[in-house]
Nucleic acid binder design. Structure first.
Lengths: 343, 343
DNA sequence: AAAATTTTTTCAAACGTTTGCATTCAATAT
DNA sequence: ATATTGAATGCAAACGTTTGAAAAAATTTT
């Protein structure tokens, strides 16, 4: 009985022996439609479960009300917090989010952007993949801009694109973290860095290095080891650090995962945190409050970033004549917990 | 120069003084098109950055290649793992995922489902919201089914709908957890239950209760307290448990968050885990491995659920004549860590 | 050179909806 | 009775693309 084919305005028109235009107007409460006709049509439409075909409307109006969100991963707390923030602002406005996960892969990123454009997405939030960043290819991004589709960078960004951006102040966050360690009295502070080249990695590293310099402490090459953002990638580097002739007495991890990896190794060595080794992470992921000892970290307001990014997008589409791209930099905030509180 | 208006097939046709059909065929490598014409058109299309308007195609073919994912939240590890699984299977097949977050809200859930149908989504993955579950309203679900849009239930499910489902075996997971506590020697096992009415809560509770019964242990009313799945909601209930005249010597939390909340309270009381109080969670969230002590838990394969759900969906759309709805129940697996290992 | 064949291109309809303009019909004013 | 108004409805085009069938153009065969 209930056919799979959705009932259309034409079906209703046929039923009432009137034209599709009349049905359309009736359903939209157009004033020029006779009260009775309107009521009959609306009632019948409800009965048969008529639902406007938004696809046809999209074609007609060239408005799709859909937005692309292109991120390297959604397995981390931070990324989902950002998406949550985007959601919070944009879904009540009727926008639909298309989430694309690139797995840090350039080819996928390119494909998804192209697909989003083909689908006439009205805006794209992008956190560029690591591979893209390394490769230096960015025609796929230029293409988006050429098409005048609003493009909002999130966190990882290209310096020289005319777009809006929302990022966290990684530099000062890292700086504050290291300054805190110094104030506690730690003298030999190592850094488990993120992958080279990524803004996030480099900014945090810069904050670390600049802070050491400010306090006339050496920035020692061998105290800076790369990781890949996850727990496992911190294991070997931490072991190397602790096995040195003069090992560090504090470690600043590029994120919480890495710090937690380091924490495991430090404990296994029988060293105490924070007495023997101080430890700081970055992100304030939910887990950081519940490790033992609890992890000092830097808060990274993902949800807020998402909401700010939404705001930037809305600014652009409701664009006044004098619209200017903005670069929002949200402050990061040091959260002091047990892992750095040597007394 | 670069107009915002995307270049269409008609633009190209005008440029070559030919008909849109020719352009269309040329771009699609139709054999009936002259080799030169084809090459010229394709080259020009590339130059001007032509991109097929998929919206018009969707209208024409009644295929949108987009799928709805409706979940109560994306702030938890489990939900994102599911989405990740859906992604992994479906994105390579060209599907686009529209993520909708209901915040456990019935009105929102209804609105999103309706919107997804309006957008002619080809399938919907749904984890029903708590409010929906409680309210017992489900016309919005019937509407989806009426429209013959494949509907796949994830985890939280209505028993009496003709759809496919993918769930984790909560019952046996909970049973195994409690059995493990008993085998260790714990005698008074409390349960921090999830919200009443939800399948997840009830199944885990049932596993807990049945296991106690099997070993002739009392199922004590006062040992079963509701929480709301998050850390905070476990604080007061745990305090209440520990303040009892004869407090429990083990606590089974409905999920890791709740167990972690309990862990905090237990530690604050100066009690030792697992010596004084044994503790088990559920979900095997990444955090559970890094608490102190590390948390015994039950693995809940979110990613696999997503992939299984995708498979169920694909079965339905590639539907053979003899297609039958399936209910996949993935096994859960006890992960023994420190919080329950009293020796 | 005409007919037959093959190759290439165009026409027109379709997908579902909206909307400016024209049309129809009834009611009122002259 | 006829012109004038007003209300209610229909027509046709538009959005961008594909596709079967028809037409046109080029080529081959007689």
């Amino acid at each position: 009985m209930n056919s799979a084919r959705p009932v259309t305005i034409k079906d209703i028109a046929r039923r009432f022996r009137c034209s599709p235009s009349t049905v359309s107007r009736a359903l939209n409460d157009h004033p020029a439609i006779n009260e009775d006709t309107r009521k009959n049509i609306q009632e019948y439409a409800r009965e048969v479960g008529y639902q406007r075909n938004e696809v046809s409307l999209s074609l007609l109006n060239k408005k799709t009300a859909s937005l692309g969100v292109v991120v390297p991963t959604i397995s981390n707390y931070y990324e989902t917090a950002v998406i949550d923030g985007l959601h919070t602002t944009l879904q009540p406005m009727g926008y639909t989010l298309n989430i694309c996960v690139t797995n840090e892969n350039y080819a996928l990123e390119k494909e998804y952007l192209s697909k989003l454009l083909s689908n006439r997405t009205e805006g794209i939030f992008l956190s560029v993949s690591q591979e893209t960043y390394n490769s230096g290819y960015y025609e796929h991004l230029e293409h988006v801009i050429q098409r005048k589709t609003p493009l909002i960078f999130i966190d990882r960004e290209y310096e020289d694109f005319e777009t809006s951006r929302a990022t966290v102040d990684d530099y000062h966050g890292a700086f504050a973290a290291v300054e805190h360690l110094i104030s506690i009295g730690y003298k030999h502070i190592a850094h488990l860095k993120g992958p080279n080249g990524l803004t996030v990695s480099e900014q945090r590293f810069k904050g670390y290095a600049d802070c050491l310099k400010k306090y006339d402490m050496a920035v020692r090459e061998e105290f800076i080891i790369n990781t890949n953002f996850n727990v496992e990638s911190a294991i070997v580097p931490t072991k190397r650090l602790l096995d040195m002739a003069t090992p560090p007495d504090a470690i600043f991890g590029v994120n919480d995962q890495v710090a937690i990896g380091a924490m495991r190794v430090v404990k296994q060595k029988g060293l105490r945190i924070p007495q023997d080794v101080g430890l700081i992470g970055f992100d304030n992921s939910p887990i950081s409050a519940y490790t033992f000892p609890s992890l000092t970290t830097v808060n990274r307001p993902g949800r807020k970033i998402g909401m700010e990014a939404s705001r930037l997008f809305l600014n652009q589409v409701n664009g006044a004549e004098d619209f200017k791209h903005e670069s929002i930099v949200l402050p990061s905030e040091l959260i002091i917990r047990e892992s750095s509180l040597r007394i």
